[in-house]
Computed example of a mutant assay.
Amino acid sequence: MRIAIAGSTGLVGRHVVREALAAGHDVLELSRQNGVDLTSPDGLAGRLEGVDAVVDVTQSPTLDETESTQFFTTVAGNLGDAAREAGVTRSVTLSIIGIDHVPDYGYYVAKLAQERTAIERGPAARILRAAQFLEFPGQMLDRNRDGDKVVIPELKTQPVAISEIARLLVRLADDRVPEAMVELAGPESGELTDFVRRVAEARGVEVEVIGVRASEGMADGACLPGQNAIIAGPGFTDWLATQA
């Protein structure tokens, strides 16, 4: 089958392209680097002619609630409308576990708006809510470090490998997983602050990791997977041991 991947050159998108090709599918890449502006509907339906499924792994350029909501809903709406016009039979959107229980964090509000738009306007919409990436604690260390301190939001999480996210997105796209809403997480849960400390230690970086209660839901476990979630891939401990 032919799968269009929106955001194909991003961190997740590159993995989805590889997984789709490995599964024997034909891939259409949709990204600015491929000359496609998904914030504009112009010509998008024509590009999707002959496509069977669309996978949306686009990433907002900002965490601001208003701006990211505008980006996500515009892209989801454009993709959904163009997919229906082109006769695409299935759409899949990558989202985040727990966003419907975190109304006090703007980016998650934006992701929830993206989900709703994808469901309303995309053909046979399916949503994959994933836990944070295994790489996320390291990203937070790099982004939030200020000298010998790093301030991190309190977050209970169960991080998952990006490769597992990509694999499940493709399985949703080609109908090997038929559910309309799926959660995916890794096997090891913990506090984000602890994961960040372990990354710093593994890197030989001496920093004080300070947790702040930025969101009640995130701190209280809203982003942990439910009992029906798919659990896959290495846990954080095993993954970190493989990192140089």
Rank of each mutant, 00 (worst) to 15 (best):
I3W: 12
V12H: 10
H15Y: 11
V16T: 03
V16L: 06
A20G: 14
D26K: 10
E29R: 14
E29H: 04
L30A: 12
S31V: 05
Q33W: 07
N34R: 15
G35C: 02
L38Q: 08
L38P: 02
T39G: 10
P41W: 07
P41V: 06
D42L: 10
G43T: 07
L44R: 02
G46I: 00
R47A: 07
L48Y: 11
E49M: 06
V51D: 10
D52I: 01
V57L: 08
V57I: 06
L63I: 02
D64W: 09
S68G: 13
F71R: 11
T74V: 08
A76I: 06
G77I: 04
G77V: 07
G77E: 07
G80M: 01
A83T: 05
E85G: 03
E85D: 12
G87D: 09
V88C: 08
T89L: 04
R90D: 12
L94D: 04
S95E: 07
I97W: 00
I97Y: 11
I99H: 06
V102W: 01
V102M: 13
V102A: 12
D104Q: 11
D104F: 03
Y105Q: 13
Y107P: 04
K111E: 12
K111L: 14
A113S: 13
A113G: 06
Q114W: 03
E115K: 06
E115P: 10
T117N: 02
A118E: 05
I119T: 14
E120M: 09
E120I: 00
R121K: 15
R121V: 07
G122V: 10
A124I: 00
A124F: 01
A125K: 03
R126Y: 00
I127P: 09
F136G: 00
Q139T: 14
D142W: 05
D142M: 14
D142R: 15
G147H: 10
K149G: 01
V150Y: 04
V151D: 03
E154Q: 15
Q158C: 15
Q158T: 11
V160H: 02
E164S: 14
A173N: 07
D175W: 04
A180T: 14
E183M: 12
L184C: 11
A185R: 03
A185K: 01
E188M: 04
E188F: 11
S189N: 11
E191N: 06
L192K: 08
L192V: 05
L192P: 00
F195C: 03
V199F: 04
R203N: 12
R203P: 06
G204W: 01
V205S: 05
V205L: 15
E206K: 13
V207P: 14
E208L: 04
E208M: 05
E208H: 03
V209A: 08
I210E: 13
R213W: 11
S215P: 01
E216W: 01
G217H: 01
A219F: 07
C223R: 03
G226S: 13
Q227L: 08
Q227M: 04
Q227K: 15
Q227D: 15
N228W: 04
N228R: 14
I231M: 10
A232K: 02
A232Q: 00
A232I: 05
G233K: 07
F236P: 07
D238E: 15
D238C: 02
W239R: 05
L240V: 08
L240A: 12
Q243G: 07
